[in-house]
Design a protein around this nucleic acid. Structure first.
Lengths: 203, 203
DNA sequence: CTTGTTCCATAACGGTCGGTATATAATGTG
DNA sequence: CACATTATATACCGACCGTTATGGAACAAG
C-alpha cells in the first residue's frame, strides 16, 4: 500500500509498449468509431494479439475509454487553452481554428472521434455515448462560465445569452467536424470559420 | 413496354404494404443508423420475413437508399420550403426551426438519419456515406444560390461570403441534429436558434 | 383439374463479431 | 535446477451478421 511505484515485475515482461499500443488503438477508434472498429482492426494496428490486449486493457469498451482519455489530453487541449484567451471573440476563434487543425488535418483521421463513436448507437455502446456526452457537457459548462465572465467584463453585449452563445459555438464546432469528416477541404473549413467570425457579436 | 401500370399480378399476392414496410424501415435506420440496424431489427419492425424483404427491396443497401428517399421527401421538405422565404434571414430561421421540429421532435428518433448513418463508416457502407454526402452537397448548392440572390437583392451585406454563410448555416444545422441526438431539450435547441438569429447579419 | 408464377416460412449458409481456454515461452526467485 | 508468475500464440467459443436455398401456400391462366 506504501510503494507500488516500481511494481517489481515478476513474470515474463511484455513485448510491447502500452502507451504506443493505446495510441494506435486511438487512431483506429478515431477513424472507424467504436462499433466500426473490430478487435481484429485494433490488434493488427496495435501489433499485438487479442489475449495481450485483454490482459493489458480489459476489454474493448475499457480500451475505448482509455483511448478517449488520451484523445482528450492530446487532441482536445486546445479547448482548455481557448478559455484563457483575453476576449470572448478570441476564445471563439481559438476554438474554431483549433478544431480545424485537429479534425481537418492530414495526419489524423478526419472528424471527431467522440462524435463518430457516439452517434452510431449500437445497443451495447450506450455507455460509450454516455461517456462522450458527459465529457462534452463538462467542457461546455466551462465555456458558458467563460462567456458569462466576458459579459461581466463588457466583452459581450449584455443582450446576448451566454448559454445560447455556447450552444452556437458548439454547433459550429460540431459542424466543422462533420464537414471535415465528409471531405470538406481545409480552405472550405476556414471559410466557414472566417464567416462565423464576421457574425460574432462585437462588444 | 406500353402499359405496365396495372402490372397484372399473376402469382400469390403479397401480404404486406410495401410503403408501410418502408416507413418502418426508415424508422429503424433513423434510430440506429445503417450499420447499427440489423436485418433482424428491420424485419421485426417491418413485420415481414427476410426473404420477403429481399424480394421486395433487393438487399439492405437498396432498402436504405429507398428509405433515404422517403426521408428526404417526407422529413426534409422544409429545406425546399425554406428557400422560398422572402428574405435570407427568414430562409435561415425557417431552416433552423424546421430542423428542431424534425430532429428534435418526440415522435421520431432524435438526430439526423443521414448524419447518423454516414459518420460511422464501416468499410462496406462507403456507398451509403457517398449517397448522403452527395445529397447534402446538392441541397447545399441550392442554398448558396439563394444567398447569392439575397446579396444581389441587398438582403445580405455585400461583404458577407454567400458560400461561407451557407457553410455556417449548415454547421448550425448539423450541430442542432448532433445536440438533439445527444439529448438536448427542445428549449435548449430553441435557445441555440434564437441566439443564432441575433448573430445573423442584418441588411 | 394442372401448370406456372409469386409469395411466405423455416432453416441454413459462410463469415465475422467480442471474448477466452489452453499450451508454451520468458522472466524473477528459491 | 525447480517453481511461481506473467506474456504470448494458436485455436476456438457461442452469437450474430447479411444473405439465400428449400419447400409449401396462394393466386391466375389454360
Amino acid at each position: 500500500m506504501e510503494q507500488d511505484v516500481i511494481a517489481a515485475p515478476k513474470g515474463r515482461p511484455r513485448e510491447f509498449c502500452v502507451d504506443q499500443a493505446l495510441a494506435s488503438a486511438l487512431h483506429v477508434f478515431w477513424a472507424k468509431g467504436y462499433d466500426g472498429a473490430s478487435m481484429t482492426d485494433l490488434t493488427e494496428a496495435m501489433g499485438i494479439t487479442k489475449p495481450s490486449l485483454y490482459a493489458a486493457f480489459g476489454n474493448k469498451e475499457a480500451l475505448f475509454h482509455k483511448a478517449l482519455d488520451l484523445y482528450e489530453q492530446e487532441k482536445l487541449e486546445y479547448g482548455r487553452a481557448a478559455l484563457e484567451q483575453p476576449t470572448a471573440r478570441k476564445v471563439a476563434e481559438f476554438y474554431l481554428r483549433g478544431a480545424i487543425d485537429v479534425h481537418g488535418g492530414t495526419d489524423d483521421p478526419k472528424g471527431c472521434m467522440g462524435l463518430i463513436s457516439s452517434l452510431a448507437c449500437s445497443p451495447e455502446a450506450e455507455s460509450i455515448k454516455a461517456d462522450v456526452v458527459r465529457r462534452r457537457a463538462s467542457s461546455q459548462r466551462l465555456l458558458v462560465e467563460r462567456f458569462e465572465r466576458a459579459k461581466a467584463e463588457g466583452d459581450i453585449p449584455a443582450h446576448v445569452d451566454a448559454e445560447g452563445l455556447t450552444s452556437v459555438l458548439y454547433a459550429l464546432l460540431q459542424g466543422i467536424t462533420v464537414q471535415a469528416g465528409a471531405g470538406a477541404t481545409r480552405a472550405e473549413l476556414e471559410r466557414l470559420v472566417d464567416t462565423s467570425m464576421t457574425l460574432w457579436p462585437s462588444a
